[in-house]
Write a protein that binds this DNA or RNA. Sequence first.
DNA 1: GGATCGCTTCGGCCGCTGCCGAAGCGATGC
DNA 2: GCATCGCTTCGGCAGCGGCCGAAGCGATCC
Lengths: 250, 250
Amino acid sequence: MNPTGSPFAIAEIGALLGDPARANMMLALIAGRALTAGELAWCARVTAQTASGHLAKLTAAGLLAVQSQGRHRYYRLASPLVAQMLEGMQVVAAVQGPPRYRPKSRIDDALRAGRTCYDHLAGRLGVALADALIARGCVVLSNDGGEATESGMAFFRRLAIDTAPRKGRRRCFCRPCLDWSERRPHIAGQLGAALAERCFDLGWIQRVRDSRAVVVTTKGQSGFKREFGITGEALMPEADPPPVPLKTAV
Amino acid sequence: MNPTGSPFAIAEIGALLGDPARANMMLALIAGRALTAGELAWCARVTAQTASGHLAKLTAAGLLAVQSQGRHRYYRLASPLVAQMLEGMQVVAAVQGPPRYRPKSRIDDALRAGRTCYDHLAGRLGVALADALIARGCVVLSNDGGEATESGMAFFRRLAIDTAPRKGRRRCFCRPCLDWSERRPHIAGQLGAALAERCFDLGWIQRVRDSRAVVVTTKGQSGFKREFGITGEALMPEADPPPVPLKTAV
DNA sequence: GGATCGCTTCGGCCGCTGCCGAAGCGATGC
DNA sequence: GCATCGCTTCGGCAGCGGCCGAAGCGATCC
């Protein structure tokens, strides 16, 4: 049909994701948890009936999966492939896009500090974790892939991080994922997921209600320092010090 | 601003890619070569003035890069990240989408047989190559990454495939890339690019004019069989035998 | 069983945007 | 210097699609 031979499918997906309301819904779901239609309507800042139409389209296109439960309908991303696609778009948006002014918001700051990216950690915390593991020779990352070293595997086992091979072979179970806020890679893939899960289990980090943001707990402050040597602002919820110290308060 | 904290950037990219004309332009450029505005207009099946508007938008958004040369303007994808994003969208489109009826076309068949995917090989040929390398223990692929084995590195050196490490570290220079037509992984990343380049240099494959499709040459037929053990329909430009042999031609 | 709630469907409004014809502009060719 | 070519800009038209109010439908609560 068209000279490149490829179907119009990209245009369909693009059109779906091209509406701000739908894009916001998808972004809200990138955290990996299922949300109700009402919650997604709120996320997208539209009324319930408008959201309903959007969700129907996204579901029909196979981007979302839906499950009815009582009088609620829970929506989630249809597959990890969709999450990966969204990540890819976010990366391009962050890297290519003009460094546009974004009104600094508390929520944005919280996400930049630390967040989940589908099933692994991103933001300053995620990048710091990756940096620490690279510096210690536990993992090696490149543009095209990543792998855990032998010493890295031992390190992960010691921390009780699940490194059992899942259908894929040993070692190539880790991949770099470019961080849209830090513009540097963090660790995704099976290892990234296991790492994040273990941090939650240890009580080092906690999800922020209604958000993908995560905060480091007091226990996490010492844990990340002890095990990974991470200190300072990578663990802080807010990056910037107060801009002007109010020395002469009125 | 929005509750997920992420900017509206995904919506902007989606809206750009959501127009069939623009999507076709991007797909035409995924082959990696630069095309003129006129060629892209033809690909998108729109007039020159319409194409001009689209190209201006794509360039302003940082998805395309443009270079003037005489009275031509050459457009290409702004970065490999953009190509990777498009691949990701194609995969989702192919995998999630309903198995819609696509009018079988010669062009489509040619692309399914073999094509370049930005800088590496895809289609039946690309997948067969990946399968062969996996079967011979040259590479290992999983969902999250891939690596070349020691014996694989020796194999590649013997074929004069460039395996010199580029800024990334040794070995993790290969990644799986899900094939939209075969729905199975082929080899991308530095190794995938080097592999494809070597096949072109050896005269095993040739680009089809005005297309991402590649065809296996006679030399390639024997070469792929000798070095990779690939035979049969993976090397054929057309998958299907003629449906009904015209035994009683008029 | 009536009230409430969560979600969907319907209908009409309206704004955005893609489309092309015509014209303009710079580079090339003769 | 004039014709041609490749591309862009302008202007006006037309259609698609998102939005919300109102209404409908099923599940839940009391």
